[in-house]
Simulated assay, not measured.
Amino acid sequence: MRLERRPNVPVHLAIAAPLAAVAVALILAGGLIAAAGVNPLTAYVEMLRGALGSRLSITEMLTRATPLILTGLAAAVAFRARLWNIGGEGQFFIGALVTAWIGHSLGLPGLLGIPVLLVVGMLAGAALLVGPAYLRLRFGVDEVVTTLLLNFIVILFVGLMIEGPLRDPLAFGWPSSVPVDSDFRLPDLIRGTRLHVGLLLAIAAAGIVWLILARTVFGAETRAAGLNATAAAFAGVSLPRTLMGVALLSGALAGLAGSVEVLGVTAGVTTTMSPGFGYAGIVVAMLAALHPAGVIAAAVFVATVFVGADAMSRATGVPSFIADVIVALCLLTMLVALLFTTYRVRR
Rank of each mutant, 00 (worst) to 15 (best):
R2L: 10
A16P: 00
P18H: 04
A21G: 08
A21Y: 03
A23W: 12
L26Y: 12
G30S: 08
G31M: 12
G31C: 10
L41C: 03
A43D: 00
S54L: 09
R55P: 02
L56V: 11
L56N: 10
R64P: 01
A74P: 02
A74D: 08
A78Q: 05
A78S: 15
N85H: 12
N85S: 10
G90L: 13
W101I: 13
H104T: 09
G107C: 08
P109W: 08
L112G: 15
P115N: 13
A127M: 10
G131V: 14
A133N: 10
T146M: 08
M161Q: 11
G164Q: 06
P165T: 12
F184W: 06
L186R: 03
T193A: 04
L211D: 02
F218N: 00
G219Y: 05
A225G: 04
L227Q: 14
N228R: 09
A229Y: 03
T230W: 07
V237Q: 04
M244Y: 11
A247D: 05
L249G: 02
G251P: 01
L256K: 01
A267N: 14
V269D: 05
G308T: 04
S320V: 07
A323M: 05
V327H: 06
L329T: 05
C330H: 05
V336Y: 12
F340H: 08
V345G: 06
